[in-house]
Structure formats: C-alpha cells, structure tokens
C-alpha cells in the first residue's frame, strides 16, 4: 500500500506561482481561495528560499480527527479528501491543520464560513469520478484519469513533485546525491509525529 505525497525542493523553487495558477485553472478555484500558496523565507536576503505549500495529505491527519461531522477521510492512496455535503464550515480543521491548508469561502454576514475547500491532490471528492457534480464541488479528478496533480506536473523547475512516497523519495535522494548537498538539512525522511510529545515537530530528526 503506497501513499501519495507532495514534495517541494527548496533548492529549486523560485516562487513562480505556476503551481498556484495551475491549481486555480484545473479546479476552477474561485477568487480568495488559495488551495496552494508559495511562501518565501528570508525574502530578499541571502538564504532566500521558497516553498510551495498545500494540504500535505498527512497520514495521521489532525483535520480527520477533529472534524465534528467526520467528513474528512483518506482514500486508498492516502489522499485526504472531504465530503462537502457534510461540511458545516466550523473551521476546526483549519485550527488543527499544521499547514494552514483548509480554506473557506466567506458566506453570509459576519464572515461566517462556507464549506471548507482544500487541495484534493487533484482527486476530486466522494462523488463519481469526473462527474459534473464532483467537478463543481472539488474540481478535476486527475487521479482517476491516471494523472498526477497539475500543480506538480506544471512546476517550472520541477521543484514540486507529487506521487507515490517511495518514488518521490528516490527522486529526491538522487537529486541530493547529484548536487552534492541537500536543500536544507537531511530532513527527507523526517516525520511529523504526535506520539512523542503532543505536537508535530519540524526539526525532529530520525
């Protein structure tokens, strides 16, 4: 059993935002909803690095655990999807998510939230694959067509890659070997755990 992952190579990403617009394009994501974003650290100074972030499709996903109506689930590929029909827009998944992935359209007065929207790994939702209903709610289901998420497929420098965890690991390992240095610490196999002490740890080495 594999697991679908995204990986963004900090040494390649140039903040071109192709992933962001590819996502908007493929899934007709409305203005104001950013399923994917590119964050630049040390902007404008040496050490500047950019990284593209969206839902990381965690295996032990906090959003799955917190959802009051239990509509967030894993697919067989380890993709975290949700059923918008059951979403009540409470915002809890956003509070729980370490990566700020869930997005909400503003509906009604007082900024009250509409149904949560997030990266689907281009795998649509619970509806029939590539049905009009699925497309309108979640966007394209590329996985069902045997294609990978468009953001990664269109990445200008191939910084963002997506696919089976083992293959992604191999590709990145090969890159690190070739270039002779890692983009920022030997963190590839790093895990994000809650067993040993409550919160996820970025920086914890295995």
């Amino acid at each position: 059993m594999g697991k679908m992952v995204f990986h963004c190579d900090g040494d390649r990403c140039i903040e071109c935002n192709a992933c962001v617009t590819a996502c908007k394009n493929e899934n007709e994501v409305p203005w104001g909803i950013n399923r994917r974003r590119v964050v630049t650290l040390n902007d404008g100074v040496p050490g500047e690095k950019s990284i593209s972030v969206a839902c990381m499709h965690c295996s032990d996903a906090p959003c799955v655990n917190v959802c009051p109506t239990n509509v967030i689930y894993h697919t067989e590929d380890g993709v975290v999807l949700h059923n918008k029909d059951g979403c009540i827009g409470c915002g809890y998944c956003f509070y729980a998510c370490p990566f700020g992935a869930p997005q909400y359209p503003q509906e009604g007065n007082f900024g009250s939230r509409g149904k949560m929207d997030k990266c689907t790994f281009c795998a649509g939702g619970p509806e029939e694959a590539n049905s009009a209903e699925e497309f309108n709610k979640y966007g394209r289901n590329r996985l069902a067509e045997g294609k990978l998420p468009l953001c990664a497929e269109m990445c200008s420098t191939k910084a963002l890659i997506a696919g089976d965890a083992d293959e992604i690991a191999d590709i990145f390992r090969q890159r690190v070997v070739e270039r002779g240095f890692d983009s920022g610490g030997y963190g590839f196999q790093q895990k994000f755990g809650q067993q040993s002490g409550g919160g996820p740890r970025a920086g914890q080495k295995l």
């Binding site: 990986h7 990381m56 990145f172």
Partner: peptide, 28 residues
C-alpha cells in the same frame, strides 16, 4: 469536466500511520 470515468477512490483509510513527508527546507 469530461463526464464519468469510473472512480478509483476506495473509501477506507490506509492502515499505515505515516506522517506527512516533509523534507529539505521543512526541517529548518
């Protein structure tokens, strides 16, 4: 979208409990 090709989503969570793959920059 192009209308219906068969879905491939199996509605059960994976039995592995891995955590998100984070790498490179993330570790810093």
């Amino acid at each position: 979208p192009p209308p219906g090709s068969a879905g491939q989503i199996i509605a059960s969570p994976p039995d592995t409990m891995n955590y998100p793959y984070i790498s490179g920059l993330w570790s810093d």
